[in-house]
Design a binder for these strands. Structure first.
Length: 298
DNA sequence: GCGTCCAGGTCTACC
DNA sequence: GGTAGACCTGGACGC
């Protein structure tokens, strides 16, 4: 079945899809041939479908679902996708700031700034842990294994992202060796078990009334999440006060602003300080600017 | 093909 | 509060 979702003025589908690496990690997948983003959706009714999302002109997303959905499931699909594409967030203040700075006038013109996220905070947090202290290739292996070995199998190609309950039922040894999470295994397991036991509700982070500083502390209290991971998780929660610097961003900053010469993170932080609560997003726009030259940057 | 070294964030112990 | 070392893996490199 097919259905549509209206998007706000200025929304750019491919710039949102390619806002960072999540589009290349399952249950997301890019289908370049058919010009769409694929996402496996998991519903409260326990139904799972493959959704193929493409952009129609006239500010509309078109969703092709592999199975018919009930009215409630369709509403749930719309809610999940609106959240993934950040359709209900207001970027007008960010774009006003961008237009004040010659180096960032391209951002509103490109419809950039929306960072793709998963339907659940849990998926984003586990994936973020899987990006720490390793190559992108290893992140892909870990996330692929999580979906294929612990997710729900729709067919040979499509799997859901595993729930905390499923992960909590496995051993640290399994996560280390079979998922290849290595020393990250106890962190993922502890988080899953805390959620399952009701000791922590990370889905509430999305609507938290805490100040960004307090929320940052809360995110950092999860083992395995340091300053880099917490800063980037906050960006996916719509808070951009932290840069979330990693070695790749550092290298990009040196290349763009220092002619390849190294500097401390403090210098990088000071460079974006004047952007206030948007500084994390300006930082990310800056280091990924060259992605916007191509429809499929990777 | 095998062994060694290094890069990549976070945690813990120690000063 | 700051720092060193351990954690684990893939990839690069030398032999």
């Amino acid at each position: 079945m097919r259905f549509n979702i209206r998007v706000p003025d200025g929304f750019n589908f491919w710039r949102t899809v390619y806002s960072h690496g999540w589009c290349a990690l399952p249950p997301f997948e890019i289908d370049k041939k058919n010009d769409c983003l694929i996402r496996v959706l998991d519903f409260a009714s326990e139904k799972k479908v493959v959704a193929k999302i493409s952009y129609l002109k006239k500010q509309t997303l078109n969703i092709f679902s592999s199975e018919n959905l009930s009215k409630i499931e369709r509403e749930e699909a719309v809610t999940q996708l609106r959240s993934c594409f950040r359709l209900d967030e207001d970027y007008s203040e960010f774009y006003t700031e961008a237009n004040k700075n010659a180096d960032f006038k391209w951002v509103p013109k490109a419809g950039a700034g929306r960072l793709l996220r998963a339907p659940t905070v849990f998926e984003d947090v586990v994936k973020m842990i899987c990006t720490t202290n390793c190559s992108w290739a290893l992140t892909e292996i870990m996330v692929d294994n999580l979906c294929k070995k612990l997710g729900f199998k729709l067919d040979d190609s499509y799997f859901t992202f595993p729930t905390p309950e499923v992960i909590a039922g496995f051993t640290e040894k399994y996560l280390r060796k079979e998922i290849r999470a290595g020393y990250r295994a106890p962190y993922i397991l502890e988080l899953s078990r805390r959620i399952t036991k009701g000791n922590i509700d990370i889905e509430k982070w999305q609507t938290s009334g805490l100040s960004t500083e307090e929320l940052f502390k809360k995110v950092r209290s999860v083992k395995g999440i340091g300053p880099y991971a917490a800063g980037n998780i906050l960006k996916l929660l719509g808070r951009y006060d932290y840069l979330g610097i990693d070695s790749w961003c550092r290298g990009k900053f040196f290349e763009i602003h220092r002619n390849g010469k190294k500097c401390s993170d403090k210098v990088i932080e000071n460079h974006y300080k004047h952007f206030g609560k948007w500084r994390g997003l300006f930082f990310w726009m800056d280091v990924t600017k060259d992605w916007y030259a191509k429809k499929f940057p990777f």
